[in-house]
Every structure is written in structure tokens, then in C-alpha cells.
Amino acid sequence: MRETLTPRERFGLLVIDEKPDRCNIIPLVTSHAAEIARMKLKKYYTNGEAMARAQIAAIEEYGHDAISIFSEVGIIAEAMGSDFDYPDDDLPVIKRPALTKKNIEDIKIPVPKRDKRLPVYLEAIGYAYQSLGDKVPILAYVPAPFTTGMMLSDPKTFLIQTIRDPDHIKKIMEKSLQAAIEFCYDIIDAGALPIIVDPLASSSVVSPKAYKNFALPYERALIDFLHRYDLDIILHICGNTEPILDLLLETGADLVSLDQVDLSLAIEKLSKRMRIIGNFDTSKIAFSSPEEIMEEVKNMVKRGIKSKKGYIASTGCEVPIKTPPENVRTFINAAKEVGWYWE
């Protein structure tokens, strides 16, 4: 049998700079898992056990290398007071951002074990950990302060304030950072490795300057906090990150998960210090034919495993909910075919 290691062992080797049997394969199978488990999305994101069961079902179906605990990036903002709707067959939709109702000073730091859907994540982690924690690493997605901040505000106002009222933005950032730290603290206690996600800080949305001023310092602060635990931290920013590649080095992240960026460029710029995760086009995984996926994933992985400090074959962003399972399977098979380090 060529596959010698469990996903847990494979990930463990990666983060101590050793080459595992083959590269880790972790397409971002998040809410898509609900589809595999034939579960209503609402159940997925409101019930921790259901979320974990869906994730386990996905692991059994695909055999990828990590469990991803995630529904959407509003999770912390909701616990801080933003209102969300819970459609049956859809992910939660923000209705009223917290800061349209009250001032930033009046926003409370949530209690993760109690507030809104934060406990859902914690329960999901707990269940998945009991079930597969010895074999498979569990990754819990934590929205970075910038993303949470935008989910707390009317987005337009928020973005304008990045130019007009930076001090106010910093206040929001400080609070969101505190909230993220508290959440991470409980996530670790439940047994998962936090992944910092900051999609709204990508260059698809804000300028590198705004990223540098408002997103990076707080990503860094959150990562610094987690580094106290001697954990290796993944930073995921989907969207376009090419303009901020150099800045990513300053976040201190140990692994960086990228989306719309040239993989070779990212390896060139980052792989001395960071492991690269990425970056298969999500629209391709949803719509391309298995033949095309096979071909392109192989090309990607062949480039990826050249990265000195290690590489995880992944999608640039979440696998879309209705992606045909055949496509995800093809992704994994393709990566398994060419992603070997050991003979």
C-alpha cells in the first residue's frame, strides 16, 4: 500500500518541515459536505452534531486530509450583534449589521460557549474530534478582524470609513480581534486548529494600503496570540491576493491559503517561510469535466510540490455547494496520482 500515513500524521510532518508520503490534499469542503450528507443547509449550520456528521460523511466519501468546520464568515459578527436570517436551503444571510443599531463602544465581546452559533462550531469540533481526532486534523475557520468588522457594519459605510475615518475602523478592529481571540481560545480547547480567514481583505475588495493598515496588523495580532500555543497557523484569503503577496509574509502565518494568484509566483515569493495551500479555481471544480479537472489539478500539484517548505493541494476557496461529487473525487485522485514525496 503506497499510502503509509494518516491525514493527521501527514499534516504533522508538514508543519515540522518534513516531507510526508504525499502532499496533504485538503480541498475546502465546507458547506458542500451538507450536500454529501443529504442534509438541509439550515441543519448544517445550526446544529453542531449535524455539521460534524456531514463533515465525517464527506471524509468517508472523498478521503481528503482534514475536516473543515465552517459555514460562513459572519459567525463572529453575528455573536457580536449583527442579525442574520436562516434560510432552509441556504447559508445564513445578514439582515442588519450590529453597527447600524448601536455604537462600537456598546458591542460586547461574545462568549463563544454561549452566544449565537459559536457553540455550533464548538460542538461540531467536539464531535468530530471524538470521532476522528486521532486520524484527521480538524480545522476551524475563524473570520479575521477585518472580515468580522465588515460584517458588523454596513459594508459601504465600512469601506468608506477605511478612507474617511481610520480611527473608527481601528476601534472596530480591536473589538473584532478580542472576539476572535476568545473564539480561538475555545476552539483550541475543543480540539481544532484555527484557520484565520480574511476574504474581505483581499485585493478584490480593498487596496494593499488598506490591507496593510487595517487587516494585516490584526491578522498578525491574532496569529501572534495563537503562536503562544506553538500552533502552526493557516491564513486563508480568497479572492485576488497578488498585490499583497509580499505583505502576507508579515502576518507571521505558517501556512497561507491562496485563491486567485499565480501559484508559481506565490511559491517564489513565500515558500521560504510559508507552506503554500491552494489554489484550484472553484468555478472549475464546480463546472469543468472530470477530464479537465484531472489534467489541471495534476499540473497544479506538480508545481505545488516543488515548493520547498511544503504544499497542500487545495481549492482556492470553498468547494461550491452543488459541485458534482465526481469532480471533487477527481480532484483528490489527480492529486493522489502526482503528489508523492516518498518513493
Binding site: R8, Q130, G133, D134, P137, I188, G191, Y229, D230, L231
Partner: peptide, 14 residues
């Protein structure tokens, strides 16, 4: 190496 037990739990020491 000064990490609390939780760190090692996250890495699989259940």
C-alpha cells in the same frame, strides 16, 4: 516548548 496541554490535544493527543 512552553505550551499548555491543549496544544498537544489539537495535534491529536486526545
Amino acid at each position: 516548548y512552553l505550551s499548555p496541554p491543549a496544544t498537544f490535544m489539537v495535534y491529536g493527543a486526545r
